Computed example of a mutant assay.
Amino acid sequence: MNIGVAPGDGEEESRLLLRFAAPRDPVMVADWVSFNIINTERQDWARRWAKLKTFVEREGNARVPYGHREGATPLGQWVAEQRRAYAAGQMTGQRARRLEQLGMVWSPADERFQENLEAAMAYYEQHWTLCAPRSATALDKPVGQWLSNLRRPGALDGHPEWKTALEAVDKDWNPVWPADWQRHYAALRELVADEEGQAGAVEVLPGFTVHGMDIGKWLARQRTPKVWQTLTDGQRERLEAIGVVPVAPEPEAPAKPSRAHVSAFERGIAALAQTKPARAL
């Protein structure tokens, strides 16, 4: 005899509550209703968490577009609701931890930062620096302008974790010297990386370009005594670490003796030559 589907978790307990509740006992009825609502909400949350887990395993991140549906589940809307609940202090610590385990980023600003950081990391893989020109793009994102904005004074106020994340990718992402200098240095460092990290092991002549930059011409200029003296200690340390040293200054030509140093004898001879009468023919 078929007696139906076996009760799920919590269903048997809810039936017992209803069975033993007096018809006019509002407290028992309220407990039964509350139990079922809470239990259903927990199951619904767990199902959507599982959908998010599937998304993360497939996409590699928890950045679900707002309009995305995972099957019939409006997953993007659900994720946005979780962020709102977290911001309002309406989420339990256990749920927050479970979402964080999947890589949930609570702040929309943090979410955008993580997306741009991934693009910046892709740029670094190709150029060995985060001092990208403003026009630079990576992963279809304007990383050059984004990084330039972050280098502005006060741009990272209130977000020390952003600064830490950028420095983890490139400690010189915001140098005290010009970003253009850092780009040329990074290109030189990339060039000599396969030569035991020493610029002296490879001939870099003017006209040798990397990523469209004339690294040979730039290197020759850095090595001149005049320019070398204007570099900061940090710039010189970085160049010296890859074997770049300044060229020796050219020896000064000996100065010609001035008239003040001509001996009295020489002056006398010169004067005699000027006053000696010409020989008669």
Score class of each variant (00 low, 15 high):
Ala46Glu: 15
Glu100Gln: 14
Glu70His: 02
Met91Cys: 06
Phe35His: 14
Trp49Asn: 03
Gln43Phe: 06
Gln90His: 13
Ala88Leu: 14
Phe35Pro: 02
Gly76Thr: 03
Arg48Trp: 07
Arg58Ile: 01
Ala96Ile: 13
Glu81Leu: 14
Thr92Ala: 12
Gly67Thr: 08
Ala46Ser: 14
Ala46Ile: 10
Gly76Phe: 08
Asn39Lys: 00
Trp45His: 05
Val29Lys: 00
Glu81His: 05
Gly93Cys: 01
Tyr66His: 09
Ala87Arg: 12
Ala46Thr: 15
Tyr66Pro: 00
Val64Thr: 04
Asn39Leu: 07
Gly89Met: 11
Arg84Lys: 11
Gln94Ala: 07
Ala88His: 13
Gly60Thr: 00
Arg95Val: 03
Arg83Trp: 03
Arg95Cys: 00
Ala80Val: 06
Arg69Lys: 14
Arg95Gln: 09
Gly93Lys: 02
Ile38Arg: 13
Ser34Lys: 09
Arg42Tyr: 04
Tyr66Met: 06
Gln94Ile: 07
Leu75Thr: 01
Ala62Glu: 11
Pro65Ser: 09
Ala87Val: 06
Glu59Val: 07
Trp32Val: 15
Asn39Ile: 00
Val64Cys: 04
Ser34Pro: 00
Leu99Asn: 01
Glu100Asn: 05
Arg63Pro: 00
Arg83Ile: 05
Arg98Glu: 00
Gly93Pro: 02
Leu52Gln: 01
Glu57Ala: 15
Val33Gln: 11
Asp31Met: 04
Gln77Lys: 05
Val56Asn: 13
Ala85Cys: 14
Glu59Cys: 11
Thr40Ala: 13
Trp78His: 07
Ala46Val: 09
Ala72Ile: 06
Arg47Glu: 11
Thr54Val: 14
Thr54Arg: 08
Val56Thr: 08
Gly93His: 03
Lys53Cys: 09
Asn61Cys: 12
Gln101Glu: 09
His68Asp: 12
Arg97Tyr: 01
Ala50Ile: 07
Thr92Cys: 09
Trp32Met: 11
